[in-house]
């Protein structure tokens, strides 16, 4: 297990380094921030001054070297736009996104497992057909469309919840509901398929021959075995949310890391872009590690 963790950590460190290089140079391609931050009629001297302050005058490789040096000291640089350390801005946004992702994925996982298992127990029954129908719609509908329709119906039309922004719990309802739909549809399908095959497995036959009731057969014997492929998809979907649910956060004016990333790209706020990507990449690394550990916990045959 320890060697496994060490190997994974080393591999991830290399990925992060690659990511830094890639994003650093790619972001420079978006153009010169000076054009964006100073008025069109700013004097050449003012422009020069701005460039000097933000270190944009040095050759690109020197800039990169300086960035890596600072990074090695856990200094992600100052945000051009916000006059605060880039990391602070990112962590603030990430905290929002993390909350949103954790709440949504918890709901999705619990609901998808219960509904998917019950659907699998009576394949072709009314419940199964309804669940399959709605999950297919959920998995196929684009989230920007659902978000807009939800705002039109529930906020503008019925006035039950606010359209966007942050505040009390009522501000969370629509973003969570919209983010819920797609992963729920997808994961439900995977749970259902996986449960159908485990329910027809030989050990479930043994469980029936033992005289077990239906509930332990489904939720003890079948479910734990069925969870392995499900976890993979859950991890995948959670990673998408951690990346910042860009579209949904933007539509609902939710101050998460996804919205921050889009804003900082538009604002050519290079340090924030880089910090945001590094933080989410690290989060995804941690999550994948958790999933691998969860595999081994669920299935004693898996040992690292």
């Amino acid at each position: 297990m320890k060697t496994f963790l060490r190997k994974r950590a080393v591999a991830s460190a290399f990925s992060l380094i690659g990511l830094v290089i890639l994003v650093f140079f790619l972001s420079r391609l978006t153009g010169d921030p000076t054009d964006l931050y100073l008025p069109v009629d700013a004097s050449a001297e003012a422009r020069e001054n701005f460039r000097e302050i933000h270190g944009l005058n040095d050759p690109l490789l020197v800039q990169f070297g300086r960035y890596v040096w600072d990074l090695a000291h856990f200094d992600f640089g100052m945000s051009i736009r916000r006059a605060e350390p880039a990391l602070d801005a990112v962590l603030r946004g990430f905290a929002w996104t993390l909350q949103l992702a954790v709440i949504t994925m918890t709901l999705v996982t619990v609901m998808a497992i219960i509904v998917g298992s019950l659907a699998a127990y009576r394949v072709g029954g009314v419940f199964d057909r309804l669940a399959t129908f709605f999950s297919l719609i959920g998995a196929s509908a684009p989230d920007f469309w659902i978000a807009i329709v939800a705002i039109v119906v529930f906020s503008v039309g019925l006035g039950w919840v606010p359209t966007s922004g942050t505040g009390g719990w009522e501000y969370w309802i629509l973003p969570i509901a919209v983010l819920f739909i797609r992963p729920f549809g997808l994961i439900l399908q995977v749970v259902r398929g996986s449960m159908i095959s485990t329910l027809s497995s030989a050990y479930v036959k043994t469980a029936r021959a033992k005289g077990l009731k239906n509930r332990p057969i489904i939720f003890v014997h079948a479910l734990r075995n069925a969870m392995l492929p499900v976890i993979t998809v859950i991890g995948d979907q959670a990673a998408a949310l951690l990346n910042g649910a860009v579209v949904v956060e933007t539509i609902f004016g939710f101050p998460g890391v996804g919205k921050l990333m889009i804003d900082s790209i538009l604002q050519r706020d290079f340090t924030v872009i880089l910090a945001a990507i590094m933080v989410t990449a690290f989060a995804i690394f941690v999550m994948n590690l958790l999933i691998d550990i969860l595999y081994a916990v669920l299935d004693p045959r898996i040992r690292y």
């Binding site: 497995s201 050990y203 029936r208 021959a209 033992k210 077990l212």
Partner: peptide, 24 residues
Amino acid sequence: RRDLNGRRIAMIFQDPLSHLNPVY
């Protein structure tokens, strides 16, 4: 019938590996 299964009438199968639950 569930009460009979296992208590009064029990069964074993071919291929015990697949008939035992691998995760318990």
